[in-house]
Design a protein around this nucleic acid. Structure first.
Lengths: 343, 343
DNA sequence: TTGTAGGCGTTATCAG
DNA sequence: CTGATAACGCCTACAA
């Protein structure tokens, strides 16, 4: 900020015209002679003029900045979403200001506060695992402040959401395992209070039902943190003690799936011969593993793109948010690799 | 921005005092009666007052916002750095505005422009692979605009950089391979114009020299994009044709190392028995592979933290940047796993 | 202890 | 076609 940027006034003084003329000339307003425009542009170039976006925002009550609140940046899926967000925002001339909550509600709240203080035009949110009370969002929604939720969406009426079809993805994964001949398919589930987890569990159960597979509630095992070590421990336990003994795992994410693979390896169980495994998210490492990990791909980049488009649309339309606000559900794609194909 | 936030004036009207009194009361200025302060605070609370950071920034010529320019968000190392940046910035009350260049200089330039227009107080940069001319940076540096470069640092005088000790890390990795008894150690190198690549190559060579290992220039093979497929193809070629035949690979990143592992697997070569492999960066998947991948860990989070601290320091000190501006070199750590330990 | 006035850089309105 | 003036919301000399 110590740049001593030239201002409109400087240009005006230099050219002996008023600052309004400069402003208009630079904005290509009607009613400015071409001659003047030319001179102004030249001088702007020469003096390396750069408009002060802050002043402009203050004057226009619009900052051309959107806020993004995300649980963690270091996360393949979320970083992919960010990439999509950034792409669209940039192409439409919007800035992105970013905070991660590290899964803390408190942080979520203060982030919203500082973002609002910075006059963001809208908000893109995937809330934290801790968030159970959505009042800090509903307060804003009531006032018609533009918010789009993605991936993790709240239990509120009339919100605009972009999600992935978790149910369908889980169904497809489970169906695939069944078709490969696996029967005792256990599910490594995510935390119950996230809709993505419950949807995945629901899809899993529906597939079992549809194919008439007898199952028990104990086949669903929660792996709340969803990292490989936790999942490995849990899976090891299950493989040692559970009745009936599982012959496949459908994990709610890839890390958990890897944990299961590691457990199998240690116990000398062959994947996919003895145990089939399917993950969720299609993280980069799936193809690097041996055997390569089948997984349900989520279009993270697309999610970012669509959510941002939706948000910018709302912002453009200002108050007149007529017509149905349509949430978006994106398709998943089951990528079948070695870990789930019986020889 | 359609929030109809209460302003200082609104509070003033409500309480029948002047707006300066409000401003001072809220800021806990000396010379305001406790009584007034109390009343103002209450009213602020009641009216849900939130200061307009834009107006404040405009007035104070400081935005409390820093810009971050990064090649890609979807990248384990960079996202880790972002996480560190975000952490420090948040704790010191700074906003982070983020853009990715997707390795394009043009995007780098326009991003800088819009960020400057938004009056950022300073800039954190890891430049794109395309960037060969640093004028868009040096122009700013000349005017004493605060910039800290991280990971990829320019060939300019007097810049503040935060890097990892690539040379040392590469040396340690190579030394380790030698000590394990590998002799024909090839290097999968990154693009020549990035200092991180050349430093890693230098460290590799130094280790070979120090241990008196005869080698040839052809042992260094460039894998510019550094993804697993490219590296796999290259490695396959080398394993089939090169003389002498390699018995180990030190890769400039983990993706390339994985590519090498895949190539070995396909050719029926056992890792680590016949071929030793070490990567660089310690991505999450290293521990998930079989065999697990040895790698040189880079402290990404720390890099973000230190770079941001350095930048905020500069910003605080405004013009008086006395004393030596000290760049920071962070230590790496060689994590020895199965892929490089001869049985 | 409080109020007045001016300005940060831009743009919108109203004249000329 | 161009200029003067006010205002966006906040801060801060200077006065009272």
């Amino acid at each position: 900020m110590k740049l001593d940027q030239a201002t409109i006034k400087d240009l005006a003084r230099e050219l002996n015209v008023s600052s309004s003329t400069i402003s208009r000339a630079l904005k290509d307003y009607p009613g400015i002679s071409d001659e003047t425009k030319r001179k102004v542009r030249e001088m702007a170039e020469k003096m390396n003029y750069r408009p002060n976006a802050l002043a402009r925002s203050l004057r226009k009550s619009q900052s051309f900045t959107i806020g993004v609140i995300i649980p963690e940046v270091v996360h393949f899926f979320f970083s992919t979403v960010i990439s999509g967000i950034e792409e669209v925002a940039f192409s439409k001339g919007y800035n992105v200001i970013l905070t991660q909550t590290n899964e803390k509600v408190s942080r979520e709240k203060t982030s919203i506060d500082t973002m609002l203080a910075n006059q963001i035009d809208g908000l893109l949110v995937s809330y934290s695992k801790e968030t159970e009370d959505f009042e800090h969002f509903s307060r804003l929604l009531e006032k018609n402040f533009p918010i789009v939720f993605f991936d993790r969406v709240p239990k509120l009426e009339n919100t605009l959401n972009v999600t992935v079809d978790d149910y369908q993805g889980a169904y497809a994964a489970t169906q695939h395992l069944i078709q490969q001949g696996y029967r005792k398919i256990y599910h490594l589930a995510g935390p119950k209070y996230l809709s993505i987890s419950t949807e995945r569990a629901r899809g899993y159960l529906a597939a079992l039902e549809d194919y008439g597979i007898q199952h028990q509630p104990s086949w669903i095992i929660e792996s709340p943190r969803g990292n490989e070590n936790e999942a490995k421990d849990i899976t090891t336990e299950v493989l040692k003690r559970a009745v009936p003994k599982p012959d496949a795992f459908f994990a709610h994410n890839d890390m958990a799936a890897v944990g299961a693979m590691m457990a199998c390896r240690e116990l000398g169980l062959k994947v996919p011969d003895q145990i089939g495994i399917v993950g969720f998210s299609d993280w980069q490492f799936c193809t690097m593993l041996e055997p390569s990990l089948s997984s349900v791909a989520q279009p993270g980049f697309q999610m970012g793109v669509r959510a941002t488009e939706l948000l910018l649309d709302m912002i453009d339309k200002k108050g007149n948010i007529e017509g149905p606000k349509n949430s978006i559900v994106l398709e998943t794609e089951l990528l079948i690799r070695k870990s789930s194909q019986k020889p």
